[in-house]
């Protein structure tokens, strides 16, 4: 990568395999940190690159065959730059991604440019979905969707979790009843 990074340096990255930073103090024995699946970043990168290739190749090939070599090269270069940039973007996203199950709800923190921390109390979870695409199933990766009765954050998607983690998170979020707050 050149010196002019298009992205801010990835902020406090969690060591990929390190144990979650569980607070040692009195509070929160049940607070649990969920990490991304170790292969999630690879999966995202390859699917993104796949899409870029699928979208850019026909155009570039068509231009090249028609004899417009310069535009074809420019398009290919643009696709390459986009792919490189997406590589860094996804790495930064994974580095900033934090998903914690607290005693009373789900805490998600993520975003590369637009940082966002969202807390949904367990009692406000209406229902949940766990999805797996065909490729994600191969790696045992799943996406958890959490639905609330709210209007602006009616649906929270947590992608890149291990399938078992997604199921555990789901079970624990649905575990307790309470008022739905509407």
């Amino acid at each position: 990568m050149s010196t002019t990074d298009p992205l801010p340096p990835p902020e406090p990255a969690l060591p990929a395999a390190a144990p979650p930073p569980v607070p040692v103090a009195t509070a929160a024995p049940a607070a649990r940190e969920f990490l991304l699946h170790p292969r999630a970043l690879d999966l995202w990168r390859w699917t993104t690159w796949g899409w870029i290739a699928v979208l850019a190749t026909p155009g570039a090939a068509g231009l090249a065959f028609a004899g417009n070599l310069l535009p074809a090269a420019a398009l290919a270069l643009a696709a390459l730059l986009l792919a490189l940039w997406m590589r860094r973007y996804l790495a930064a996203y994974a580095a900033r991604f934090r998903c914690r199950l607290l005693l009373d709800g789900l805490w998600i923190e993520r975003g590369v440019y637009w940082h966002r921390e969202t807390f949904v109390p367990r009692a406000r979870v209406q229902h949940t979905d766990v999805n797996q695409g065909p490729l994600a199933r191969r790696y045992g990766i799943a996406e958890l969707k959490v639905f609330t009765a709210g209007a602006q954050v009616a649906e929270i998607e947590v992608d890149g979790l291990a399938h078992a983690d997604a199921l555990a998170l789901r079970d624990s979020l649905l575990g307790r009843g309470g008022a739905d707050g509407v």
Partner: peptide
């Protein structure tokens, strides 16, 4: 966040 859950337990602690 600390007041959001009506049946809030004690497990919440700020980041």
């Amino acid at each position: 966040a600390a007041r959001l859950d009506p049946v809030r337990a004690t497990g919440w602690e700020p980041r």
